[in-house]
Computed example of a mutant assay.
Amino acid sequence: MILRALKRLFHQISLGDQSYRFMFAPGPIDEVVAFDCETTGLDCRRDDIITIAAIRIKGARILTSERFEAVVRPEARMRADAIKVHRLREADVEAGKRIEKIIPEFLRFIGGRPLVGYYVEFDVRMIDKYMLGLIGIELPNPLIEVSKLYYERKYGDAPAGAIIDLSFSAILSDLDLPALDQHDAFNDALMTAMIYLKLRDFKERGVRIPRSRVTRGTEAPLG
């Protein structure tokens, strides 16, 4: 957290293209953005983004009419294992824009709003690698990790040895939320937005999520 704050300060000072100064201004009050990226793989250095989706949340409303969706034509080859996950073939992304065209549009959509995600740091690292080349900065936005919010509501007071499951499906099930087709950037962003709002409500009302009494070993494995 401290490192990210220092990076933000450095990038704010060193920003060359002043047209992106808006990224460092606070977003509208009570607004955040849930977002998700689908990629050609899980290696931030070698793999590329193929789809990005983002949805604005204002107060307790998910503004699906105010959303960002883009298909990217990647530089990296589409591997068979990744195609099985997100079900997008090279032919499906061939008509997409280059990421250099999409990043500026994405930044203007999110502005300075906090970004909500599920393992959001991976998606942010993928965005950052393009931003550094294009603009010379990384995303300065505050980050909200829904798996962390879920952990606090369910496992924050768990004893040593408690079994911990932070999978997307477990979170949706515990919160009684609909499971849409996963590994679709828009669906994942929408489900993340629903998770965020429900967990935020739980926290505000002091509601905890019941957990099993089953334990295993002495350490809590991360799901």
Rank of each mutant, 00 (worst) to 15 (best):
I55R: 00
R56A: 13
R56D: 14
I57E: 02
I57H: 02
K58Q: 15
G59A: 10
G59M: 08
I62F: 08
I62M: 04
S65T: 10
F68W: 03
E69W: 10
E69P: 05
V72D: 05
A76G: 03
R77D: 11
R77S: 14
K84C: 08
V85Y: 02
H86I: 04
H86Q: 05
H86T: 01
R87W: 07
E90D: 15
A91F: 07
D92H: 00
A95F: 13
A95C: 09
R98M: 13
I99W: 02
I99T: 02
E100T: 13
I102V: 08
I103M: 15
P104Q: 03
P104S: 04
F106L: 06
F109A: 00
P114H: 07
P114W: 03
P114E: 11
L115R: 00
L115K: 04
L115M: 05
V116N: 03
Y118A: 00
Y118T: 03
E121V: 15
D123Y: 01
V124M: 09
M126P: 07
I127K: 04
I127S: 04
M131P: 02
L134Q: 15
L134Y: 14
I135E: 06
G136A: 10
G136W: 12
P140T: 04
P142K: 09
L143E: 05
I144T: 11
V146C: 00
S147R: 12
E152L: 08
R153E: 05
